[in-house]
Design a protein around this nucleic acid. Structure first.
Lengths: 164, 164
DNA sequence: AAAAACAACTTGCATATACAAGTTTACACC
DNA sequence: GGTGTAAACTTGTATATGCAAGTTGTTTTT
């Protein structure tokens, strides 16, 4: 009769989804607070930064979705707000009219550059709060997980996982 | 002139917010897919499980918010859907009428119990995909981070934060 | 005991996220 | 060179999340 209570305890003690989300929430709140003066949120800075990294400063939506491991439908709407705010432009590819190409506006570039110091501050505060070692462990574990769960994983060097 | 390009690379390479969110998205998708047959999402199972863990199977909202590191306003709405679905009840505390006490309905208990095998499956698949070591590292890093960033941190051993 | 202060939520507003079902454009094949 | 299929989004719908500003009920002050 404590059966399902035990089960509930096991779930609480082991669930990676709960843990990943809880930590993401906490970290996001910290970044958002530090970024408050910039008028940008952490997700928006992340998105703009991914755009800025594209060759020639432009990035096709599909590419962005892959980089960020985001649904393309989510991207559609996240871009919308930034486009309305005049921070980026969404155009169509010349060579393939289906493809939407994202690019920062001059305003967007300025705002992104202006957010950098605040991002650095947020990052620094978190690393301080965690300690350098824990922060490095977290970074490594998150990257390893993202890579292992990427749909692209396994396509290259012979892995031992069984997608087939 | 590669200045801000470098900055963008640094941000992409180091940002913990991006990493935490990306990983949380990927993990959540995996759990949600495994839970599909149950009609419940990972967040909902997490929430219901936290309720089930309360003394006597009941949990005050404030307690839930703290356990889950969730804004109480978020909790208000997340509970609403589950209440409408008849999976839990939200009542008021006898001793303090401000406090809302959450409790699973019989249906809720059944549904949660029924979701357990699917949760186990999701968990197992992810541990397999990551490898036991990486999974353990991730678990530890997420917990350490959540604890370090918890507002309750510092209340015990002499810290330098200024809550007063 | 009335007033002030506080605690525990709820609501308004805005963004983030995903799946399923559409739409538009490209491409392959006959 | 039309037709069918596939790719790259977009839209509809639903949930998740958080801050700021209420609301209601409790506790503290005076």
């Amino acid at each position: 009769m404590t059966d399902h209570l035990d089960a509930a305890r096991v779930m609480a003690a082991q669930c990676l989804c709960f843990r990943a989300r809880r930590t993401a929430r906490a970290i996001t709140r910290a970044y958002d607070e530090a970024l408050r003066p910039t008028g940008l949120q952490a997700t928006q800075v992340t998105l703009m930064n991914a755009v800025a990294l594209g060759p020639d400063g432009a990035q096709p939506m599909g590419q962005l979705a892959e980089i960020l491991a985001l649904e393309i439908s989510t991207l559609t709407r996240n871009l919308r707000a930034l486009e309305s705010a005049g921070l980026l432009d969404v155009g169509r590819s010349e060579t393939d009219r289906r493809v939407r190409v994202v690019r920062l506006t001059e305003t967007g570039k300025t705002r992104l550059a202006g957010a950098l110091p605040y991002w650095k501050q947020a990052h620094g505060e978190i690393v301080t709060a965690l300690g350098a070692d824990t922060a490095a462990d977290l970074h490594a574990a998150l990257d390893a997980t993202a890579q292992a769960m990427s749909p692209a994983e396994g396509r290259k060097a012979g892995q031992k996982h069984s997608t087939a």
